[in-house]
Amino acid sequence: MKRIWGLILIVCLLSCDKERTNRNPFLQEISFQFELNLNLPLYSPLTNDGNSIYVGNSQAGTRGVFVVNTGFNTFRAFEASCPNHAPNECSTMTLNNQVVTCACEDFEYSVYTGQQFSPPEDGTRYYNMLEYRASFSGGNVVVISN
């Protein structure tokens, strides 16, 4: 019985991956917390399911944040800087309905999932949008943080 437990322990130790995350080398993960009061006209579009907005505040993310209401008081927030190169003059993405576009190379991403549409198949590692925590804290306030 001890041999079986010893074998299981060895297998578990050998199967552990030292690199636990697939860290994006282009974007720094900065700490911040920002509140969106949905009673304010600037953020009121988020009171409707499916709507998304760009928050270009210097206190939220590197280049701002895209926030989407995915329904049932659930929100998602993503970094507005293109995830596939270091921040520069063209890396702040633009929101067009439910699609976010990086002007540098016209890469497109889903504002719902943060996933890149049609990544090139050239052997290069491409990253999806960096997601931040978004929580609805009653009283019509969405808290975005990292």
Rank of each mutant, 00 (worst) to 15 (best):
A77Q: 00
C102Q: 05
E121T: 15
T94K: 14
L14T: 12
F34N: 05
E35W: 05
N57L: 04
E121W: 03
G56I: 01
C82A: 07
T62Q: 07
K18S: 13
N146L: 10
S52E: 09
M93N: 10
V141A: 00
F66N: 03
A86D: 10
G138S: 03
L38R: 11
R63V: 00
F34Y: 15
S135R: 14
G71I: 01
L38E: 08
P45H: 01
R125F: 08
V142G: 03
P119T: 04
N88Y: 11
A103S: 15
S31N: 13
R63T: 08
S44Y: 09
G71W: 08
F75D: 02
V99R: 07
F107H: 15
R3C: 08
S145K: 04
R23W: 08
S52Q: 14
A60L: 04
A77M: 04
V65I: 15
T70E: 02
L46G: 04
I53P: 07
Y43Q: 10
T21S: 14
F72V: 09
M1F: 13
G114V: 02
Y109M: 09
T21Q: 13
A86C: 01
S58E: 14
L13E: 04
S31C: 06
F26I: 11
R23V: 12
C104Y: 11
L38Y: 07
S15H: 03
S31L: 13
S58R: 12
C90V: 12
S58L: 10
N146P: 10
P119K: 10
S135F: 12
T94C: 06
T74K: 05
K2F: 13
F107N: 15
E131F: 05
L38F: 14
V143Q: 06
Q98M: 11
R63H: 09
L7D: 13
F75E: 01
A77S: 07
E35V: 09
T94M: 11
I8S: 05
N97V: 15
Y126P: 06
T92F: 01
V143H: 03
E19G: 03
E105K: 15
T101F: 01
S91R: 03
I8Q: 09
L46S: 01
P120L: 14
C102I: 07
R20T: 13
T21C: 09
I144Y: 07
